[in-house]
Design a protein around this nucleic acid. Structure first.
Length: 447
DNA sequence: AGCACA
């Protein structure tokens, strides 16, 4: 259907409109700056910034057509171009007569951020990395990711607009730190606006969406039954599909590793629901069940290859099990279901649900907190105001607030290890403190 | 450097 019209799509002279189209604006140009620019010529009644793919265009609308004409004619003959922050901006009449829908989203602060991940390999950025990045600013409630024409995007939900704003201010326009991505991934830049959402709906824990406030949310089948693209992580090395159940094999088991020891070690990352130990190939293996995949992921990343005791003893090797719910038939020294009250414990708590039958748990868990899982010596903690870390080179690994389940019945308020999923590299063992109550026959040397 | 929308 050939166009009868001889008019090209864009004419070099638009018919006058009280709406002006601005382009070549500096990043994050504000409404105030637009008003400032237009004020000498009349009353700016509306604006819209962050327009276009690069979000460097804007519209301003004058109360009166003559005011728009005045501005255009002024700059048409001015020797000084219109400028914002010293950057030349180009003006023309908009092909529309009024600005619609300003101030609905993107400009009004909210607790949910719309994040566009730009870059060649944006799709390879995992939800875990996003979680890590945004957790530096506060507890991340939920994340959803999706593909749109704008590219790979995510919605990141914080508890309040203030937290979201601090994340936005610090991260918008920045690149995901290189050390969070594998080397062969091209830089990924974050472009962030506010979303109009206030509470995301996450139906499943999956590689596309996570609800960190609800560890009992079912895991999407696609996340378990390794549909291939989902199961390969950023680094491309996670070939096995993630699971909430970890299979631990213990190498060089010079000392007894009991159920309680395992429980203690793995509880540092979240509530352990069930453990089953068994012998295999002359060694010992155990299945450890968490309520959710991401806790298992965190635990696996932090613990893989590390030793329960100093000196290379009882080295853990972890993989994801295909189980999602262990069937514990009897509670004994080889298997236990921590989700049901232990009748053997004459220790009825109000709401026996989730109580730890192991007495040493509470205090012992602390031994596995904090610096022992920290990324080695001298790594600076990321302060709550994260602006420092993102400015230059290599910031400290962002320390997330308790990664998950702050309100989980199993967990005391802040016993999460200060670990960062997927990125930590621990130099040695646990720092020489053996689990209480199972002291191996050697003197742990404190580092 | 060239027109928006959840």
């Amino acid at each position: 259907m050939a166009s009868v019209s001889s008019q090209p799509q864009f004419r070099y002279t638009q018919p006058p409109s009280k709406v002006l189209h601005l382009r070549n604006l500096p990043w994050e140009c504000t409404e105030e700056e637009l008003i400032e620019l237009g004020k000498p010529f009349g009353k700016v009644v509306n604006t819209k910034c962050n327009v276009g793919a690069n979000r460097n265009q804007a519209f301003i609308e004058f109360a009166d057509l003559n005011q728009a004409i005045a501005m255009i004619s002024y700059y048409a003959s001015s020797s000084e171009p219109a400028q914002v922050r010293g950057k030349t901006v180009y003006l023309q009449y908009s092909n529309r007569q009024e600005i619609v829908n300003n101030k609905t989203t993107a400009d009004v602060a909210g607790n949910v951020l719309l994040v566009t991940i730009e870059g060649q390999d944006a799709r390879l950025v995992s939800i875990d990395v996003l979680h890590l990045v945004f957790s530096a600013f506060g507890f991340v409630h939920k994340i959803t990711t999706f593909e749109k024409t704008a590219g790979f995007q995510a919605l990141v939900q914080f508890s309040d607009a203030e937290t979201a704003t601090s994340a936005k201010n610090s991260l918008d326009g920045r690149s995901i730190p290189r050390y969070l991505l594998s080397e062969n991934i091209a830089p990924c830049t974050l472009k962030i606006t506010y979303s109009a959402h206030t509470d995301l709906s996450v139906k499943f824990q999956s590689h596309r969406s996570r609800d960190y406030t609800n560890p009992y949310l079912p895991v999407a089948p696609s996340a378990i039954d390794g549909s291939s693209q989902l199961s390969l992580g950023l680094d491309g090395k996670k070939l096995e599909p993630e699971s909430n159940v970890l299979l631990a094999s213990i190498e060089n088991m010079q000392y007894a590793v009991t159920l309680d020891v395992l429980h203690m070690v793995f509880s540092a990352f979240g509530p352990v629901q069930k453990i089953a130990m068994f012998d295999k190939n002359g060694g010992m293996q155990a299945l450890i069940q968490y309520p959710d995949v991401q806790t298992a992921v965190v635990a696996k990343e932090a613990l893989e290859g590390h030793c329960i005791y100093d000196g290379g003893f009882c080295k853990l090797h972890l993989s994801y099990s295909r189980h999602t719910d262990l069937s514990i038939k009897v509670n004994n020294d080889r298997s236990r279901d921590y989700t049901v009250p232990n009748p053997a414990m004459a220790n009825p708590q109000p709401s026996g649900f989730g109580q730890q039958p192991v007495q040493t748990m509470g205090p012992a868990a602390h031994q596995y907190n904090g610096t022992q899982y920290g990324p080695g010596s001298g790594q600076p903690m990321m302060p709550p105001q994260p602006s420092t870390g993102w400015g230059s080179g290599v910031p400290g690994v962002p320390q997330s607030t308790p990664v998950q389940m702050t309100n989980h019945p199993y967990m005391p308020p802040a016993p999460m290890p200060q670990t960062t999923p997927g990125t930590m590299q621990m130099p040695g063992g646990y720092g020489g403190v053996p689990p209480a109550g199972s002291v191996p026959p050697y003197q742990p040397n404190q580092m």
